[in-house]
Design a protein around this nucleic acid. Sequence first.
DNA 1: CGCCAGATTGACT
DNA 2: GTCAATCTGGCGG
Length: 214
Amino acid sequence: MDVEVIHLGWCSPLDHQGYSRKVLAKSFYSEDPALVAERLLGALLVRVYRGVRLSGVIVEVEAYYGSWDPASRAYKSMRGDLARTLYGDVGLALVYGVHKQWLLNVVAHREGDGGAVLIRAIEPLEGIDLMAKLRGVRDLRSLTNGPGRLTRALAVDKSFHKKPLYEETYGLWIEEGFTIDESRIARSKRIGVSKDLDEPLRFYVKDNPYVSRI
DNA sequence: CGCCAGATTGACT
DNA sequence: GTCAATCTGGCGG
């Protein structure tokens, strides 16, 4: 396991003692979406763009289910491509466009079910200058604290739809990263959905300044 | 092919 | 805090 000592700025709330560059295997995503979502906190979302490694620590996620989840793209219809992707192979990216933004999910569910995890925010780690350029902002706090913002910072668009995130082939993948203590994880209702489930399906790192606004 | 809701963002009162 | 621009995807006709 490759472990490297890194140093973030004074404002980082994480204990950056070192992190694992091990790419998360496909089997990691063969679990209940809520479980996968929680386990993804602390992991690294990595993108290689024009030879530059861009990355950030995942600090906010949401779990979505299949046809019985009113906020799911598979709700009441299995005909569309998004619905079929939700029920298809796990570990693939599901890129969904809404309000001019691209939202990045990773397909995750148990056998026979459907589901995905939406990546809502990352803490910038590597390639920050280039990410700021791609976003057109200078403020670190507003660089990747939102699902549409982080895809723009990482130059992720629809071309990544249905590409595997468990291998480096397409320049976008997820690594093991850091371990976040359970005591630092909080959960709430999902943001922006009109019809949510009773169960809180949003997970985030407590007091992390790179979590999206509530 | 037209319609429209929506897992957002950024600008503005 | 409020609000609307903007466009994809899924649906009906």
